[in-house]
Every structure is written in C-alpha cells, then in structure tokens.
Amino acid sequence: MEDEEFDRLLRVCRLKVSAEQRKKLKSDADDILHYFDRISEVQCDDIPPAFHSVDIDGRYRKDVPLKFDDVEGILKNTKTHRFFVVGPRI
C-alpha cells in the first residue's frame, strides 16, 4: 500500500498514531494484504457471493417505534442537557 493511501485511511478512520506505531501498522498491513492476495488464485467469478454464513430469509423488522422501559438507563451513558444527548460541534 502506498504511504499516501495509508495516511488517507488513517484520516478517514479518525485514527491518530505515533510515528513508531504508524511504521508497524503500515508494515503489518502490507504483509497482511500480501497474504490476502493468495485468494486471486481461485477462479470464481461465476459464483454468487455468500453475504451470510448460512442462507437467511431476509426478514426485516417493522419500522415502527417501540417502547423502551429504561430511557434513563440509556441517558446515564451520555452527557445530557435536559432531554438531549450532548455531542461534539459539527
């Protein structure tokens, strides 16, 4: 992987790492991708992808609001102002 691409990924993933950690992660990433490249040996363009480990029937939940009995419990995990969860500036 090119250095520029690796640094772009760090930015996209919002990861800040030290120079030393960057060097190690980059070197590991190159080794792992090289290892992953082995799969190019398999000819399988005509095989449909298996998105799940087993075939599932693709049910969806109904898009309706449900009552949750511990709203305070959810809010305890956040910083709140009145009923609002406080987040960073956009």
Partner: peptide, 27 residues
C-alpha cells in the same frame, strides 16, 4: 472540539489489533 478532532481523540483508546482491523477493513 470539532467533531473530527473529538472522534480522533476518543479512538486513540482502541488497541493495536482493533486499529489494524479498522484500517484494513476500511481499505
């Protein structure tokens, strides 16, 4: 903090293998 800066600071808490998986999985 602006949100990118805020999220980046939080995500420093991930361990090395988690960071490796985030980077490679995104790639």
């Amino acid at each position: 903090k602006e949100y990118n800066e805020f999220f980046t600071e939080a995500r420093e808490a991930f361990g090395e293998e988690a960071k490796r998986k985030i980077i490679l999985g995104t790639f």
